[in-house]
Amino acid sequence: MLPFPGWSGRGVRPFFIQYLLMKKILQWMASPRLACVLMAYAVLLIFLGTLEARSVGVSAVQARYFESWGCLSFGMISLIGGAGVGALAVLNISASVFRRARFTLRGVGLILTHAFLVVLILAGALQYFLRTEGILVLDAGEVSHEILAGEGNGRKNIPLGFSVKLKKFDARTWTGSDIPSSFSSEVCFMRGGESTETVIRMNAPVSFGGWIFYQSSYANGGRTSVITAVHNPVRFFPWISVPGVFAGMLLIFLPTLRARKKHAV
């Protein structure tokens, strides 16, 4: 008598081999060793990218090392880029949760921690596709309602949805040198008959209308202000992920803390 309809002894061995193979793959994907290797490799990418940034620039390094699937080639060997590392990290985290998570207090903490780590990684990927960045180049008194984005032949103007007027630009240098010590732009945002005045300083960006404005540089001997404008719809994801990871880790260690407290009593 057959164990169940359609069963055939011929298919047992191949199915069993496939099951063992999938189990081995899952074990490898969920391995803590893989997580450690990925973290070490990410540190190596950051180190190599930092060294090369001095010669080719930050934008080129970001595209080559951190936004690509493959960044460097040595003959027939191609190193994985940041996108590949992120994809492997998501698979590693997901497989780890699938294998180890249990519906206990510690298990829920494990699920939360890994889930928010995945959200953090995915935020970086979504940022690559959804982020918009460009520059405003303004002299005092000039008004612009769009930014210049892209490089070379791919440059294009992107409307902001409001206007930006540069009222005053202040560039200061260190005493006895031409090295800038600080520079800031006094601007006025205008939209729908309303205006908002503020100052954009070095390391002190300003948000308006869903955009973040950074004082990035200046030109023409300090007469022209160069402001970087960034629109990133997923910028809040890291703010959500970090507390989520912290809450998950708290649930993981809470049973241990309780046990130690009882033992101490």
Rank of each mutant, 00 (worst) to 15 (best):
H231M: 12
K262P: 00
V230W: 08
I17V: 15
R99H: 08
W239V: 06
G248R: 07
I200N: 01
L117G: 12
N92D: 02
Y214I: 10
I227R: 04
L72T: 08
N153K: 10
T175Q: 15
F253Q: 01
A40D: 03
M39V: 12
L91C: 05
S163W: 02
M190H: 06
A101R: 01
A219D: 05
A123Q: 06
L21N: 11
G86P: 08
K24Y: 10
Y218C: 00
G124Q: 09
G193V: 08
I17H: 14
W7P: 00
V143P: 07
V265D: 05
V226D: 04
G49H: 11
K165E: 15
A30Q: 03
Y41Q: 06
E146G: 05
R100I: 03
G152T: 04
K261R: 05
E142N: 03
F98H: 11
N232E: 08
I135Q: 13
F129H: 14
F253I: 00
I135F: 15
R201K: 14
I80M: 13
G82R: 00
A123P: 00
V43Q: 09
L122T: 07
G84N: 05
A63S: 13
G141T: 04
L122M: 13
R155S: 12
A125I: 10
G152R: 08
P159R: 07
T50L: 15
V187Q: 00
V137D: 14
Y41H: 03
M22T: 05
T224M: 08
Y128K: 11
T104E: 02
V61L: 03
S184N: 11
A149K: 14
F47I: 11
K262G: 02
P238N: 11
G248I: 10
N92G: 04
Y218D: 02
Y214T: 02
G193W: 13
I93F: 14
P255Y: 00
I240Q: 04
